[in-house]
Simulated scan of single mutants.
Amino acid sequence: MTNDSQHVIPSGSTGLVDVHHHAVPPAYRAALGDRVAIPGVDYPGWSPDDSLEVMDRHGIDAAVLSITAPGVSFVPGDEAAKLARQVNEYFAALIAERPARFGAFAVLPLPDVTAARAELAYAVDELGLDGVGLLTGYGDRYLGDAEFEPLLAEISERGTAVHVHPMTPPARDLATFGLPPSLYEFTFETTRTAVSLLYNRVLDRLPDLKLILSHAGGTLPFLARRLTHGPTIGAHLAERAPADVIGSLARLHYDIAMSANEFALPALTRLAGTGHILFGSDFPFMPASHTTENTEGFRTFAGWTGHERAAVGRSNALRLLPTLAARLKSA
């Protein structure tokens, strides 16, 4: 690959598409109240204008909004479905106001799979949202759990893209180091859910599932080859082993929120290729100063050609999100 560090994607019709960009809708913030959303994390203020200011400053044409952990699982039963509906309708209204600046991944009221499938249909078919946002797990169950496969199968059949965001790990002593789980545990949660999808053979059964894993896939680029050795370590894993661990991981997509640096990008590029990498900022849970850092890391990484950089910054996302692509084209 050539050194193309001078290639910069300007704002305008060739600007970036940010697939890891969070929102805090008013109804969601009110429902959260005084709850601790993510232990040890300063919960930011947010408004659409805040996002637009950061987007304009960094050459980001469009941001695909999503809800971060804990999703809507902190409210019980029917209340979770009602909150998900409020959030998704807020997203739809915001997109109607700014169709060329915002997209959205619908939040689903998991772990209630029946309610989630109903909200999936409403959010995609009626509201026209661009995809769905899932957490790496709900309670102590990761996405490879059999309970979630009917939902994933329906999403796959629809051809709908899924952005997967890590959660706070269940049943662990998070005070061991006195550090917030988002600093390091989030990367392991992404790895855990990917391993559950691999070794429960969900990715084999659903080869067309369009998953976007956060933060360069957590530790997956580093562990990819190690994960092929399950049956070597334990013969009992032979019947559970995926047909092709590396091939399955290479089919997934990965955003580079908090990861556009000289340590993560070479390994991720080797695993996934530039056709499966997407730009992400993690704003506002990471501040505007980090958006600057991540954008510069993306723009100056020497391992991509200009064409590859343009794919990572924009065209890969638009291929996965055709409704957003159509809005940008008609703007």
Score class of each variant (00 low, 15 high):
Thr2Pro: 14
Thr2Cys: 12
Ser5Lys: 08
Gln6Ile: 10
His7Arg: 14
Val8Leu: 09
Ser13Glu: 10
Leu16Tyr: 09
Leu16Trp: 10
Val17Asp: 00
His20Ile: 12
His21Ile: 01
Val24Ala: 05
Pro26Arg: 10
Pro26Lys: 10
Ala37His: 02
Pro39Phe: 08
Pro48Lys: 05
Ser51Ile: 05
Leu52Ile: 15
Leu52Asp: 07
Glu53Gly: 14
Glu53Ser: 15
Asp56Ile: 01
Gly59Asn: 08
Leu65Pro: 04
Leu65Ser: 01
Ser66Tyr: 00
Thr68Ile: 13
Val72Lys: 04
Pro76Ala: 15
Ala84Asp: 03
Gln86Asn: 12
Gln86Asp: 15
Val87Leu: 09
Asn88Phe: 07
Glu89Asn: 13
Tyr90Gly: 11
Phe91Thr: 04
Ala93Cys: 06
Ala96Lys: 14
Arg98Val: 03
Pro99Phe: 02
Ala104Leu: 05
Ala106Asn: 06
Leu110Ser: 03
Pro111Phe: 03
Asp112Arg: 09
Val113Gly: 03
Ala116Pro: 10
Ala116Val: 06
Arg117Asp: 04
Ala123Tyr: 00
Asp130His: 01
Gly131Glu: 03
Val132Cys: 05
Leu135Met: 15
Tyr138Asp: 02
Arg141Ile: 02
Leu143Gly: 00
Gly144Ser: 10
Gly144Arg: 09
Glu147Lys: 14
Glu147Pro: 08
Phe148Met: 05
Phe148Asn: 04
Pro150Ala: 11
Pro150Leu: 09
Ile155Gly: 08
Ser156Lys: 03
Arg158His: 02
His163Trp: 04
His165Ile: 07
Thr168Gly: 09
Pro169Asn: 11
Leu174Ser: 06
Leu179Arg: 12
Pro180Ile: 11
Pro180Tyr: 11
Pro180His: 09
Phe186Leu: 08
Phe188Glu: 00
Thr190Phe: 02
Thr193Met: 11
Leu198Met: 14
Tyr199His: 13
Arg201Trp: 03
Val202Thr: 15
Leu206Lys: 13
Asp208Cys: 08
Leu209Glu: 03
Lys210Phe: 01
Leu211Trp: 07
Leu211Ser: 02
His215Cys: 10
Ala216Thr: 02
Gly217Cys: 13
Gly217Asp: 02
Leu220Gly: 01
Phe222Asn: 01
Arg225Ser: 14
Arg225Gly: 07
Arg226Pro: 07
Thr228Asn: 09
Gly234Val: 07
Ala235Asp: 10
Leu237Gln: 07
Val245Leu: 11
Leu249Phe: 08
Leu252Val: 01
Asp255Asn: 12
Ile256Arg: 00
Ile256Met: 15
Ala257Leu: 01
Ser259Phe: 00
Glu262Tyr: 11
Leu265Arg: 04
Leu268Met: 14
Leu271Lys: 05
Ala272Gln: 04
Gly273Cys: 13
Leu278Thr: 04
Leu278Ala: 07
Asp282Phe: 08
Ser289Leu: 12
Thr291Gln: 05
Thr295Tyr: 04
Glu296Gln: 14
Phe298Trp: 08
Thr300Met: 01
Gly303Thr: 02
His307Thr: 14
Arg309Val: 01
Val312Gly: 08
Gly313Lys: 03
Leu318Val: 08
Leu321Cys: 03
Pro322Ser: 12
Leu324Gln: 00
Leu324Tyr: 03
Ala326Lys: 12
Leu328Ile: 12
